[in-house]
Simulated assay, not measured.
Amino acid sequence: MNHYKLPEQRDFEHRIAGKNTHLITLENSRGVVVALSDFGARIVSLLVPDKYGTPTDVVLGFSHIQDYLTADEQYHGVTVGRFANRIANGRFTIDGETFYIEPNNGPNALHGGAAGFHKRVWDRRVVYKEKADFYYVAADGEEGFPGKLSVMVKYRLTDNNELVITYRAQTDKPTVINLTNHAYFNLNGEGNGDVLNHRLQIQATNYLPVDEFQIPAGVPAPVEDTPFDFRTPKLIGQDIRYADDQLAKGNGGYDHNYILDTEVLAKKLPVATAVSPTTGISLDVLTTEPGLQFYTGNFLSGKDVGKRGQPYGKHGAFCLETQHFPDSPNQPDFPTTLLMPGEVFQSETIYRFSIVK
């Protein structure tokens, strides 16, 4: 089940909506290799040496760009925007004016709408093997959002085995913004079973319970004495089958936003750490964002077949999506996601890899 390799560059040379697509590769001195595509400014592959030194691809994805166009799961590795996560009923109001995004997730608008940033071909600038910058300008009214939004996403691979993702955006009208990366991680190796054996820690005392449409009820709840308590490391699978109303609303797993502890954020410490006992690969997540959506691939159905011919089934990956809280435009008690003309939205997230022996 090893033999992980990068997709071929030629298999990502395509034309979508009049723009050419490419596969871009970053590499550091310690054997970490990242493959990116300008279609969705996404992570395609992320090869990390395991405890035996064997390169292991820890991100779900496909070997050909055509598979991304037809995939059952549209968000593999993408930059999500203009608004990550859910907006209730696809509606929000700015200065008394109501805006409408066509729902694409039951009654909700999810991840910026059906043709969000994940469907766009971004412009790019690459510094050889070290960093890649992606640029996109969303038109005023695109997917229903107000304002012409200029966005830049920078990927930088360091020799400390850190993939640093930096976001920057500006608008010409008041708008809302919530950007994240939607990498599906399996530190056992992509397609190598489920992730329930991973040990996970999340530095959050509270999380946001959701209603039947997975919209936060607005009132944070303590994780203590619930299956959502990852303050000390535990297996992802330890409580995932617990008879819990919130787990049921996530389709039999975690799909909830954690309110990250402010002290951890202030000290720039990891907000989450996941470890595979199979490979020894450890992933630390550091961020400037106030929230973390923890998702355990509950809707992966096996329809998508990955880079090594293995189907991606339920719980075949986890996501640790750094972001503002879901439905923030409709919930005034949440940290604001409003971006005004003259302001600059900035955010940074780091995925740092190491080996636990």
Rank of each mutant, 00 (worst) to 15 (best):
L6Y: 06
P7H: 02
D11W: 00
T21A: 08
H22C: 07
L26N: 07
E27W: 08
N28C: 13
A35M: 09
A35N: 09
S37M: 04
D38M: 01
F39L: 05
G40E: 02
L47Y: 01
L47E: 04
G53T: 04
V58M: 10
T70C: 03
A71C: 10
G77D: 07
V78R: 09
T79C: 08
E97V: 09
E97T: 13
I101F: 08
A109F: 04
H111C: 04
A115M: 02
F117A: 01
V121C: 00
V121H: 01
D123Q: 02
R125C: 05
V126T: 03
V127W: 13
A139T: 02
A139L: 13
D140C: 08
E142I: 01
F145S: 01
T158N: 11
A169C: 02
G189D: 05
E190Q: 15
G191H: 05
N192D: 08
G193Q: 01
I202S: 03
Q203A: 15
A204H: 11
T205K: 14
N206L: 06
Y207Q: 11
L208C: 13
I215F: 08
P220T: 09
P220I: 12
V223H: 11
T226L: 12
T232I: 12
Q238L: 11
D239N: 15
I240G: 10
I240C: 11
D244C: 13
D244M: 12
D261T: 15
V271A: 05
V271H: 07
A272Y: 07
V275K: 06
V275F: 11
S276L: 01
I281Y: 08
D284T: 10
T288M: 01
E289H: 02
D304M: 02
D304N: 10
G316C: 06
F318S: 08
T322H: 01
P335T: 06
L339A: 04
M340F: 07
V344R: 05
I350L: 09
I355R: 07
I355M: 04
V356R: 15
